[in-house]
Amino acid sequence: MMTPMVELKGLRKVFGRLEVLRGIDMSVDKGQILSLIGPSGSGKSTLLRSVNLLETPTGGEVWLDGTRVNADLKGLAYERHVNGLRREMQMVFQQFNLFPHLTVMQNLTIGPMKLLGLSKAEAEARGEELLCKVGLAEKALAYPARLSGGQKQRVAIARALAMRPKVMLFDEVTSALDPELVDEVNAVMKDLAAEHITMLIVTHEMRFAAEVTDWAVFMDEGMVVEEGPPDRLFSDPEHPRTRSFLRKHLGA
C-alpha cells in the first residue's frame, strides 16, 4: 500500500474547556483532492491549522508523507523540525495574509530565497512562471495594497506554490471575496487540481467541491460525520446531519 500524503490518527484539539476536534481520522493520498465541508464552528480551520501545526494538537498523530509532523520533540529541536516540515505543506488563508511591505514578486521570492537557498535569479524565474500561471505577470512590481481581493488571493496561491509543497491547504479562500471575484480564484484552483497537486480544501461552495474534488468529508462538532465521493455524498447523504446541512447549502 502507498503511504498516504497526509494522515491524521485520532486527532484531538482542545481550547481550554472547548473540545474542537474529537478524534479525527483522515487520510489523503498523493495527488488526491479532498474537500472538507461542515457548519461554521465545526472545527474545519482548526483541523487544517493542526496539520501544519499553527495549532498544536492536544492528542493524536499528524503524518506527512511518512513523517510524523507533531513529533515528540522539545524546544529548539521541535522548532527546527516544524520549520522544516511546514515548507512542504503550504496554506492559503481566507484573509490572504500577503506581506504588505513587499512587492508581489518579493512575496513570492522571499521564501524560496531565504528558506530553500535559491538565488535571486532562480527565485524570480520561478516567481514569474507562477505569476503567469495565476494570470498576474504584469503585477510583479505592484504592492499588495494595489490589488483587488481576487488578485491578492491568486498571489497568495502563487506564493504558496513557490515553495513547491507536497500538500496545499486551502481555508475558505474565496469567503472574503466579492462574489464577482470568486471565479478567478476557483479557476486557478481548478488548474491545480488538473495537475493533481495534493490538496485539502475547506470550502462552503458545494458546487465547486463537487466539480473539483475527488473526496468529500463532512464534519460537525469536531467529528467526521460522513465522507465519500462528492457526487455520492451530495446527492445521497446517509446521515441526517449531513442532509440538513446540505439542504441549507445546496438549496440556494
Partner: peptide, 27 residues
C-alpha cells in the same frame, strides 16, 4: 501587526526570529 502576518511567515517555514526580522519589524 496583524497576527496573520506571523501565521503566513511561519507557514512558509520561517522561524520565530526570522519572522520578526523579515516581516514584523519592517512593518
Amino acid at each position: 501587526v496583524d497576527k496573520g502576518q506571523t501565521e503566513a511567515a511561519r507557514t512558509l517555514g520561517f522561524g520565530r526570529l526570522a519572522t520578526m526580522f523579515h516581516f514584523i519589524l519592517p512593518q
